[in-house]
Design a protein around this nucleic acid. Sequence first.
RNA 1: CGGGGCGUAGCGCAGUCUGGUAGCGCAUCUGCUUUGGGAGCAGAGGGUCGCGUGUUCGAAUCACGCCGCCCCGACCA
Length: 441
Amino acid sequence: MRLSRYYMPLMRETPAEAQIVSHRLMLRAGLIRQMSAGIYAWLPLGKRVLAKIEQIVREEQNRAGAVEVLMPTIQSADLWRESGRYDAYGAEMLRIKDRHDREMLYGPTNEEMITDIFRSTVKSYRQLPLNLYHIQWKFRDEVRPRFGIMRGREFLMKDAYSFDLSAEDARKSYRKMFIAYLRTFARMGLKSVPMRADTGPIGGDLSHEFIILAETGESQVFCHRDLIEMPVPGEDFDFDGDTESVVNQRTSLYAATEEMHNAEAFAALPDDKQVSARGIEVGHIFYFGTKYSKAMGAKVAGPDGTDVTVEMGSYGVGVSRLMGAIIEANHDENGIIWPDSVAPFDVGLIDLKPGDPVTGELCARIYRDLTQAKLDVLYDDTEERTGAKFASMDLIGVPWQIIVGPKGATKGVVEIKNRRTGERAEMTPEAAIARFAAKDM
RNA sequence: CGGGGCGUAGCGCAGUCUGGUAGCGCAUCUGCUUUGGGAGCAGAGGGUCGCGUGUUCGAAUCACGCCGCCCCGACCA
């Protein structure tokens, strides 16, 4: 992408409304624009990152055996009356009426809807286990939206719903999602820690929050140090095999949010293993049994021919919130530092002297070759001053920069810079192209 | 929902107390110079001062009402 033809409105000054670093950087780097309290438009750079995060979530859901669907944002109030949550949910639910005066709502979650789909289409235990998920916009009319996208009213969420014949099978489904989440967040360069959580209004007896440690986290968390560096299962992990040992390895160590914190148990850990930190919740999984299936009559025929009310769980990932969490965990005073896997572009190519045939031709060649190698390159061919170009590229956080200046170009070298470490190296254009084209970054 | 604050050019702000031609910096546009870390000079464009009603010869400024946004707390993916 040539920057001169792209749309990337940056801000040099920090908007007054933004308090936390991810919010400030998202506005300054032109990722989002606020349209209303807690409601944002996604600009091209933000849209690219959102799509990358979404795709990682999707791939890991699929890997764990979940099947993607897409449910509507607008739901009928009738469904929610069946579960009893229409009255229970409160003012966070955005209620609307259509032209026929029918009561509708903008979905804050989809347990009722997926249960309705399930009960009308799945009739036999032979079709279980089943885990359906979708990635869709939700709306919760928070009293006080804040922290930018981290706690907006409209947000993109992946929510999965598992259906099983027995409580034992449901726990197996729960463990698959537990492991899928470990992999999902790790692929985004985040260290997540599963913590025993309160089940809240969704109900149930088994629940974990997945927390990212960050200084600006919204809540206080406590955990065993070993959890932070614990390696996650690889791509070849067998989700139909032994999931218990992976989960047990983690759940056996102390980890709790403030609400669930047990100071005594925490104090019993060796001093050097006690981690008390701030955290951001990016995922939450629940096993809640028959809460909805019972209320809504979601039953299948069991092996003996009699109806069995299915056991359910639900599993959420805050897709849009993750972008804020990633920035909270990956930035410096100059701007964002994207992990490779979610970066809006792989490489930023800077022509320091646009209009100069030597740098121009060199940039054109590098751009063409890297693009052919399937890399996303942001090619700064604008007339900005060099200082402004460096500052912009640093701000938007592209992991690697290739800097083509007139002096180097005549000597036949370009400079590559690592955004995270600041390390620079001079090399021939061929070497630079080979290095990135091999994706050996 | 309780408490506090703010709405003036794209962004950051001054002006409001004490009513009298709407300002500053950055950004934008033009020209010249400059060119490896957010340049200099000269010039230009851009504002229903959140909205409404009232007071007044005259309202960004005073009064009343409304709307929007932010912060602290309670609440939450």
